[in-house]
Design a protein around this nucleic acid. Structure first.
Lengths: 263, 263
DNA sequence: AGAATAGTGTCTCTTAGACATTATTAC
DNA sequence: GTAATAATGTCTAAGAGACACTATTCT
């Protein structure tokens, strides 16, 4: 290890001596764009596989702080909604030799890493999954030390992911679906002003289920948390939809006890 | 360490060389007895504090298997419903010197442990919480190497617990409350035959909320999963209640998609 | 005018919640 | 009989879901 200072950019190797061994954190970062629920993924330098943004825990870090640090480094955003959902601890979950066997790992690039780093990333990790909700438009994602680029993927067009990262995403979605009535999805995933159609599509993507338009609108508006703004003129040959924004204090209060919806 | 074999009893020190450092598992084991929701706790040998049944993860263990092993060792039961709910990773969550400062730790007994063990239990642990539902009547709990006895506590009369174990229990209860419609509480916590009153009290304990008797009964029976048996004659001067048992396949199928109740 | 989508209204059926009535049981 | 608790029934209000109708926008 050349550089032992705490990494804040993608250029610096990580600081193994000051990290807890055997534990990592992975973030399923959700966004909503072009009427689609999306996830931010990174492309590994030494393979054709994609990975969740993740990282390690400093000895001086609480685990939640580590997750938040990783999230902020990748997205350039602060004060994001972040929530732990599950810890993945199977013995063989991150075996590198499986990646070798499947010929998906570029050995040359892998062996260009120093030995300590190779040993580190080859060891068993128990990883804790967090999910975050962000506004894609206001973020500027960047890759980390082990990855060459990052990209948003629609949740039903995910690429091949390393290790058990596909399972991690599935678990995050299951968790969000069950706890939907208690999670601040609308206010964190949608832009400040949005249409009912956008809100409905967001719910449909999460629930994997079509909802009836007029009933959805009636139920949502009845909550009393949506403030109607001016209309949005799209230029298309139909009635322009109203834009809405959210009364944040009321919304937060509401989801604390759970919206009593069945969908 | 004198004994390096895998511990299956309370008499043997643990096998540090074959354990993953820095990670542990804690189980919130729920039971229901005398119309009360209860939790199984152990009393530490070297302090007046109580602790959740917990343990460590062998290098050859999946984390879920470790939790199941710990659960089975403590309760003498197999095939128990077990579910992970949260991982606790604060830096200072298990500082022993805090216990020293609060004079709650018996230094003599602590220093009677060998140095490796002392060092081990003094180090930082990230612990993953699991909860289990068991039938108290059919279990025979026993303490582990670090504890002198175990006891069932009603969830609203919990003693002082070590570290953040009170928080862990609270988190488990919050999780169960939110996911109640998706969890097999009735079939795992109640005896094979039970009355509607018992079922209702179980729900009330979990939800921390009184429910209306006749409406509760109507809603529950409408699910079509309760089979009415003979009456239970208690000897008291009132109408004897019917006993019910559960149609297990239907029940499992039902909670897969969640019971659509609001309480 | 016509096509397309937004917004609102109506109807039926189900459920929740409050409360009343009837049924058992031991004394 | 009486006291106590169980089981069932009744009523009202609210909600879900299906679908119809009106409103607005641009071509």
């Amino acid at each position: 290890m050349i550089n032992k200072t705490r990494s804040k950019t993608e250029d610096i190797e990580f600081d193994i001596d000051n990290l807890i061994p055997g534990n990592s954190v992975d973030c399923v970062i959700f966004g909503f764009e072009n009427q689609q629920l999306k996830i931010l993924l990174l492309k590994w330098k030494f393979s054709n596989l994609w990975t969740l943004p993740g990282g390690f825990i400093y000895k001086t870090d609480d685990m939640d702080s580590a997750a938040r640090r990783i999230l902020e480094e990748r997205t350039n955003l602060e004060n994001i909604f972040l929530n732990q959902f599950h810890t993945f601890g199977n013995m063989n979950r991150n075996l590198l030799h499986k990646a070798f066997n499947e010929k998906k790992l570029d050995k040359n690039i892998f062996y260009s890493l120093d030995e300590e780093t190779r040993k580190w990333i080859s060891s068993r990790f128990i990883t804790t999954g967090y999910f975050a909700f962000i506004d894609i438009k206001s973020s500027s994602p960047k890759p980390d030390y082990l990855s060459e680029k990052c990209e948003w993927f629609s949740i039903d067009e995910l690429p091949n992911l390393v290790y058990d990262h596909n399972d991690i995403i599935k678990k995050a979605l299951d968790y969000i679906r069950i706890q939907l009535n208690y999670l601040p999805v609308s206010i964190n995933l949608l832009p400040h002003k949005f249409t009912m159609q956008q809100l409905q599509k967001l719910y449909e993507d999460i629930l994997k289920k079509k909802l009836e338009r007029s009933n959805f609108q009636r139920k949502m508006l009845k909550l009393g948390i949506f403030i109607r703004m001016e209309k949005e003129y799209t230029g298309s040959a139909n009635k322009a939809p109203y834009l809405y924004c959210i009364d944040k204090p009321k919304y937060i209060e509401l989801i604390k006890n759970g919206i009593g919806f069945t969908y």
